[in-house]
Amino acid sequence: MTWLRRGEGVITWGVAAECRTSGEARFSDASTWWRNVVRVAAVADEVEVPGSGLICLGSFAFADEPGDSVLVIPRVVVGRRGDRFWVTTIGSAAVETPRLETQDAPEPPVNLVFADGALSGAEWEGVVWEAVLHLNAGELDKVVLARDLIATADAPIDVRWPLRRLGSEYEMCWTFHVDGLFGATPELLVRREKGLVTSRVLAGTIRRTGDDEHDLTLAATLARSSKDLEEHEYAVRSVAEALEPYCTSMNVPETPFVLHLPNVMHLATDVAGVAHDSGASVLELAAALHPSAAVGGTPTKLAVEMIAEIEGMDRGRYAGPVGWMNAHGDGEFGIALRSAEIDGARVRLFAGCGIVAGSDPEAELAEAQAKFVPVRDSLAGA
């Protein structure tokens, strides 16, 4: 498993223990299991930095049903924070420190072929148009619709190949791999570290051209776009309202900034708060935040119901929380965006767009195509 950003984080292998859960209680079941593990664990942690000691990594389904979720305690962890490196071993008895040896470099996928997933592009445009009709009728303010692509190779794909490329080309994102779900998400759902709670909200997107001067003009256009600002405001408001019960104070910036990524630019806002002394764990905070307006819509309950009704596919763990947590309840969970599920020689890629009353189906399809680019390019040959 993997959780990396700008060369820092953890890479793990092996499974010491795991909790698989599903349904509406998936977060609470996983939290209870983790608390029980922590209560009986004997931990020797001389490093004492975020990510050292006893940790677990998890990935959770977007919807209550269907969908499976998992929380995994790895057997071995290699971590880095700044100029400090460490190795953690986890087991039911005394275990020897493993030998760390350089492995052969991963090979690229062989004869990769892409095809539409649940819906073709034209069919998905029809779904977007159906959503716009509901939005224009005033039934809700925003809904996030996703689509998928299927990539198939001639032989099983080594997940290290796309992970290495994502980690180097999208170093400002959080590169992850948990139980077959991998990607590079630009959106940090929540971080809890020593009493400080932070969340990065992304909503409102424009595709980059590769021309720096033109991209600056596009960034300015994005920052003034009433459609994108409206979509972003919904997302920020939903995060702030979800975190408020768990914080003694909060800072919510009035205006977003433009986050520049290699393929797209987003409107972004960093929400911060001070956690209550008896505060919830980072997983419990992630459960309170999910699904935010950024991946569901506004009002969230109605939007999620519409997604289940018209989207036409099972999201699985796409757009659900993914990340790690330590024995103190600190950690980081991102939203599983710019992601894919790998199963042998088959990879299922996901991308989604926020739909509001002024959305154009053709433009939304182009935005979804842009959001496929990171994972799609990571699977390509050298």
Rank of each mutant, 00 (worst) to 15 (best):
P321V: 03
G138K: 10
G296D: 08
E130V: 00
A122N: 06
V201E: 12
R348Y: 01
S238Y: 01
E169H: 13
A93F: 11
L283M: 11
A203C: 11
V347L: 07
C353Q: 05
R147I: 00
D343G: 02
L229P: 07
E254N: 14
I335R: 06
Y246T: 02
T300K: 04
A368Q: 08
V264P: 07
P106H: 10
R147V: 00
A131W: 01
R6W: 08
P74F: 02
L149T: 00
F62P: 00
L166C: 02
P256L: 12
E254V: 09
E309R: 12
D148G: 05
A280H: 02
G297N: 02
T97D: 13
S120Y: 03
Q369N: 15
T298I: 11
R80W: 00
E309V: 01
E187I: 09
C19G: 04
G273M: 06
P50F: 01
R35T: 02
I206H: 02
N263D: 15
E341V: 10
D343M: 05
T89R: 15
V78Q: 07
L365T: 05
C173T: 06
G91N: 07
V37A: 07
P321A: 05
A118F: 01
E24D: 06
V37M: 12
W3Y: 12
L229C: 09
C19K: 11
P361K: 04
E65M: 05
E233S: 15
A319G: 03
